[in-house]
């Protein structure tokens, strides 16, 4: 395939992404100036509590924000340098379910209950590639094998309700993989599943990523899930990314008080047992986002300028970004 691209070159570059909903009480921006990159073959995890804007960010990447929501300038979503936001309908169709595949949290609501799972996967293939009926069926069965569905040939004619939750999620993954995407968006792909099944699915996604050289955007509210599974992590709070780093770096030395608070809230399965130190309060709604640093009302380390002025991007270390006045302070000698 021509000149090989350097492994670290970004597949997707998101610049200053905003998602705006116009309501009776004025405009709200549940996604408010988000920028990040996804490189070829890597897994980027996006974590944060409920309502932080993770799902909307994910939907925005495919221009799937439901009206009256919209994505205003100067937002940019560059796939290999081409802005998805200005693409013509036909080009956008090639991207959706083509170069970018997507799986959602709840597999039971995204499959059509009256069609066999085989025909739904076949349809996903046919939408992007020409193939005869026989070829389609063979391709579906191969995909079922790849996603580890037991007894793939006989599963072709099964209806969604005849499968377990984990098996339905495997079918959803097969659909997302049908057009051999370069990027898979996985929005809480295992939240509805049991822990042992959750481990199977994450393992599967990682195996496919390595085998196909695909990139993954893994969205989750569970920081623990990310360890050993993502290359980098972006932490979202109130519509913005507050910290981003290589996974190990983030786990070893989280810089942002929000990230540190998340870690302190998670009960550990090993090590000394301590009373949990939760972040007080809850994530505010988008119409009530605080001024300055949005985390300041819940922050244990709040400084005088935090309420007034949003913190700049700081670099606590190489490849480590944090938006916080603390890391902006000159280090004590």
């Amino acid at each position: 395939m021509g000149v090989p691209t350097p492994p670290s070159s970004p597949l997707l570059t998101v610049n200053d992404l905003h998602v705006v909903f116009s309501t009776r009480d004025g405009d709200v921006s549940p996604v408010d100036g988000v920028s990040f990159e996804i490189r070829r073959g890597e897994t980027l995890a996006m974590v944060g509590e409920s309502g932080c804007g993770k799902s909307l960010t994910c939907l925005a990447l495919l221009r799937l924000i439901p009206p009256p929501g919209h994505i205003p300038p100067p937002s940019q979503i560059l796939l290999d340098g081409q802005d998805i936001l200005t693409m013509a309908p036909e080009a956008l169709r090639q991207v959706r379910g083509g170069r970018i595949g997507m799986i959602f949290q709840d597999p039971s609501t995204s499959l059509n209950p009256v069609l066999t799972v085989g025909s739904q996967v076949a349809e996903a293939i046919a939408a992007h590639q020409k193939a005869s009926k026989r070829e389609l069926k063979t391709r579906v069965i191969t995909l079922f094998e790849e996603v580890g569905l037991p007894d793939p040939a006989s599963r072709y004619g099964a209806y969604p309700h005849q499968l377990s939750g984990g098996q339905r999620q495997r079918v959803m993954i097969a659909i997302a993989l049908a057009a051999e995407p370069d990027l898979l968006l996985a929005d809480e792909p295992t939240t509805a599943l049991d822990v042992t099944v959750q481990a199977q699915i994450l393992e599967l996604l990682d195996r496919i990523r390595r085998a196909r050289g695909m990139s993954i955007l893994l969205i989750t509210h569970d920081l623990g899930l990310v360890a050993g599974r993502a290359d980098r992590v972006a932490v979202m709070y109130a519509g913005q990314i507050v910290e981003e780093a290589a996974t190990e770096k983030l786990f070893q030395s989280p810089a942002h008080p929000y990230t540190r608070g998340l870690f302190a809230s998670i009960p550990k399965i090993t090590g000394p047992k301590q009373r949990l130190a939760p972040i007080p309060g809850v994530v505010p709604r988008p119409s009530r986002w605080p001024t300055g640093c949005r985390f300041h009302p819940r922050c244990p380390d709040v400084l005088s300028q935090c309420a007034a002025t949003a913190p700049p991007e700081t670099r606590p270390a190489a490849n480590h970004r944090s938006w916080c006045w603390l890391t902006e302070q000159p280090k004590a000698p």
Partner: peptide, 23 residues
């Protein structure tokens, strides 16, 4: 298996996770 499937924010030992087959 249940214990091994626990997402652990401190564990790097992903390699020896027990992945149970099936449902």
């Amino acid at each position: 298996a249940l214990l091994s499937a626990v997402p652990d924010s401190e564990a790097a030992q992903v390699a020896d996770r027990i992945i149970l087959p099936g449902d």
